[in-house]
Design a protein around this nucleic acid. Structure first.
Lengths: 221, 221
DNA sequence: ATAGAATATGAGTGATAACTCGCTTTTCAT
DNA sequence: ATGAAAAGCGAGTTATCACTCATATTCTAT
């Protein structure tokens, strides 16, 4: 027996039933965030919506933040899965087409659950545990960087890290804002136009200056 | 005379003394946001830090949200002032140099009060009144659009609105992320490199495709 | 000087929400 | 079957916070 802590370790548990409880809590949190907003997401309310008692909630989550973190993790994992499926294929494509596929992938990612994505982006204060939950994870950064490494011959940039930062930041911002703040873009072929433009933006940048001495600045050598 | 409401209209007031009270409250809110974070910014705490009673706070602000909104407005006005000063000059510049100046301006804007900017971006839930407080206001959108209109001859895009969206979103995201999440970029000449890259990104996009049968030539340097 | 309007005060009120703990019910190995 | 561990329960505790109001102080016009 050793020492059994009277208070439960407030952590994992997998006896079938408990697994369901945890899922119900995370799902309830997501539903409340989407339908009622962050400030209505009290632990009592979450437990009620999950059909579970507050006590049970605290068996598995140390607090509200942990619930929200779980929702974020679940959403990011959902996105990561669709990305992973296409990775190998896209990696083989040359910059021109590859960038287009990556942009299209980003758009698709943002369409998985736009309402939730929006709440997570706009209403959740990045405080405490959530501070680390970055807008677009380091994983995408690393992934894109290795894509650029693979195609180094085709591109024309000296600082790979900087180029990665520029591309990832830009693609994320464009797709995020388009999907979440300009819903009219979603319909029509406007979305296609956006993808075209974003692709030209990024691919043109990666392929380097079109005209020698175009936008250069005086620098030392 | 007529009907004087017993309860103050909970609004403006300018008798010198009250003006100072309002300023102290807004200033206190900003200080607390920066130094202690959003969740420490209770009305009681704000009033205390301003050296004012809670009652006075509620004479001028209907609630906490209004205080935060005032801080946002003050910060945006501060940025707008530096921008307005350079507007006329930048408008005259051709796309290549103009874009560079605009990017540099965006960087400068973000350096005005990075700590506050960061808190406003990351910790303030966009709920209620704050919903309208957009990341980067419509004003910048309109301003940039008219810059593009002025230089329509130099650029090569069919949809001006879309191009404006792409440029404004990209510039904002790049400068925002660089200044707030990659502080190492601030030092060195890394910042210069970022500005170079962002300029090439945007200007290249605006000037249109380079390789296929479109042979435009423009030189400036 | 003085009245009344403007401004300031801060203890108090009510609501809400995070979190606990003694207890019951379910599961499962034996 | 049975006992102990796991899971679940939810009223109750504690704390914080937004906001009010009866009262006090300061200003301004006459």
């Amino acid at each position: 027996m050793a020492q059994r802590p009277l208070i439960k370790p407030r952590k994992d548990a997998s006896q079938g039933r408990s697994r369901a409880t945890v899922d119900a809590l995370v799902e309830a949190t997501a539903r409340i965030l989407v339908r009622e907003g962050f400030d209505k997401a009290s632990t009592n309310h979450i437990a009620e919506m999950a059909g579970v008692s507050v006590g049970s909630l605290y068996q598995y989550f140390p607090g509200k933040e942990a619930l929200v973190a779980a929702v974020i993790a679940r959403h990011q994992e959902e996105i990561a899965q669709t990305v992973r499926g296409e990775l190998a294929r896209v990696f083989m494509l040359p910059v021109g087409e590859g960038v287009r596929e990556i942009v299209a992938m980003a758009v698709r990612s943002h369409r998985i659950d736009p309402k939730l994505h929006r709440v997570l982006a706009e209403q959740i204060p990045r405080v405490g545990d959530l501070e680390k939950a970055e807008t677009f994870s380091r994983e995408n950064f690393a992934l894109f960087r290795s894509y650029l490494e693979t195609h180094r011959g085709e591109i024309c940039v000296d600082d790979l890290d900087l180029a990665t930062f520029v591309c990832v930041t830009t693609i994320e911002a464009l797709t995020h804002n388009a999907v979440l703040h300009h819903p009219r873009m979603l319909s029509d072929g406007t979305m296609e136009a956006l993808i075209d433009n974003a692709t030209r933006l990024i691919a043109g940048y990666l392929k380097g200056p079109r005209d020698p001495a175009a936008g250069r600045h005086h620098s030392a050598a």
